[in-house]
């Protein structure tokens, strides 16, 4: 069963890069998840943890940059490998940004939860975060499986995230107009929603990078947004058999 392939030191180095990317990705996913939980449950302790955790990603990105540069200098990689390495640099930068955005949400926890907001507002924010996190998870799963054939889901979900964000934005605005006392907490919530929406954008960037790594081509440009329709793309619970 065990295939006897010779693993060269070079292969090991490349593999190390992708393992580090995955570990960073897992860390960022967890940070965002916890930032949202802290927000919804008004949990400043958890928010503090998220803020502290951010250094791990800064560190990770620095390490990947250093390693990648050493590999390029030492091995003079060609086509595929070069794409892999440059891709790793790009992806780790996106993941680091995702962490920053998660941290920013966590920083707003205290301000938002000062006055108790209606649960429906949080429900919308949670739904938006679920979408963005699903996007991130599935994109990082593609990084693991390299199956870029059906990466089209990324565009659909990106549209969906935008639509959800717009809807939340309106809801928050009406809420602010109803009662001026809501303005401060709702402004923070607006920024949280914006941050989550941008996490979705970074996930899309990562998808584009993966597509480039695997195929050497750019991912098809955005579809024309002619028709005013919305699509609910459900996450796939049961993988295709």
């Amino acid at each position: 069963m065990q295939s006897v392939h010779i693993v060269s030191a070079y292969d090991e180095e490349l593999k190390y890069l992708s393992k580090r990317i995955a570990a960073m990705g897992g860390h960022a996913e967890r940070m965002v998840e916890q930032a949202i939980t802290a927000l919804v449950n008004a949990d400043p302790g958890l928010a503090q943890k998220v803020i502290r955790d951010d250094v791990v990603l800064d560190e990770g990105q620095r390490e990947i940059d250093d390693k990648a540069i050493v590999i390029i200098a030492k091995r003079q990689p060609m086509a595929t490998d070069l794409r892999e390495i440059v891709g790793a640099i790009r992806i780790s930068a996106d993941i680091e940004r995702v962490g920053d955005l998660g941290k920013n949400v966590a920083k707003r926890v205290v301000a938002v939860t000062d006055g108790r907001q209606p649960t429906s507002l949080f429900r919308g924010l949670e739904a938006l975060a679920d979408l963005a996190l699903t996007q991130l998870k599935e994109v990082l799963d593609v990084y693991a499986s390299r199956s870029v054939e059906n990466i089209g889901f990324v565009r659909d979900r990106d549209d969906q995230i935008d639509a959800m964000y717009t809807s939340l934005f309106r809801e928050l605005l009406t809420y602010m107009m109803e009662d001026p006392r809501n303005i401060t907490p709702c402004t923070h919530l607006l920024f949280c929603a914006k941050n989550i929406e941008r996490i979705g954008d970074h996930a899309t960037n990562i998808a584009e990078t993966i597509y480039y790594i695997v195929t050497g081509d750019q991912m098809a440009a955005e579809r024309p947004k002619g028709d005013k329709t919305d699509k609910i793309v459900l996450p796939s619970a049961v993988p295709a058999k």
């Binding site: 393992k19 990317i21 995955a22 897992g26 860390h27 967890r30 990082l140 799963d141 693991a144 499986s145």
Partner: peptide, 13 residues
């Protein structure tokens, strides 16, 4: 496939 690319959660790592 590399297992640690799929199971990215810090505790799994």
């Amino acid at each position: 496939m590399t297992l640690s690319l799929k199971f990215r959660a810090p505790e799994m790592q």
